[in-house]
Amino acid sequence: MSRPPIRPPIRPRRALLLPLLLALGLAFLYLPIASLIVYSFNASRLVTVWDAVHSPTLKWYGELFHNSQILEAAWLSVRIAVMNATGAVILGTLAGMALSRFGRFGGRALLAALTTAPLVMPEIITGLSLLLLFITFEQLTGWPAQRDAATITLAHISFSISYVAVIVQARLAGSDGSLEEAALDLGARPSVAFRRITLPLIAPALLSGWLLSFTLSWDDVVISQFVAGPGSSTLPMVIFAKVRLGVSPDVNALATLLITLVAAGVLLSTLLLQRRERSRARALALSQEG
């Protein structure tokens, strides 16, 4: 049996150039993080001067767990982040549903504008305006008597809603709008249709919306600084105060812990998702053979 000669495919130079640029970009993204991690094991208090005699060491990690200020701030941040994420998912889902499934309604343009603006609004403006809002509230109603975790949470929810709304909208836009109609047609009341069809459909979006809102809140320093009161310092606020004075080895240790924790989580979920996709693809291939 004779085969036609196999010609090598034409490979433009870009085929090499692009991956090279991508690799450079990724190196740019990861080298600073890598250096942060490496120097967290450095024994020297000078952080960037490697103390070859006593390193690597875990002493900064040990100190971290005895620093009550950091531990308290971290606990406060977790509580705020959880409340924020939960609130933002509820409100953001409502907004996303309304925008993508209700067609035209009065106030649609306003709602659309109000949900997209916080995505790009400079934090400093949002922070200032929310603080002034709380102060005006206090003058008018006596609440909030002091600014604390509650005011931080309210502020965080206000900008996290947008991210959830966008994720939910994208998910709903990618799915068939007639699914809910089909449920109604089959005799399900709107509430049943939402619970049994819409909710499972947008569940992945709700999960990623929750995680994103958690992260946004967990990371926020500018807005928190405006709306926090004395005695309610979140972890980013504590870190910010510390690093304004320069590098400090225990912050390196803290950063390493946080970054590896998040990276492990994201990696794991991506891998799980990929495995599910792959089994789905396999099932699809099987069904087409049959």
Partner: peptide, 10 residues
């Protein structure tokens, strides 16, 4: 997904 503040700090 990791802290913005810490990445600037790096």
């Amino acid at each position: 997904w990791t802290s913005f503040l810490l990445r600037v700090y790096a």
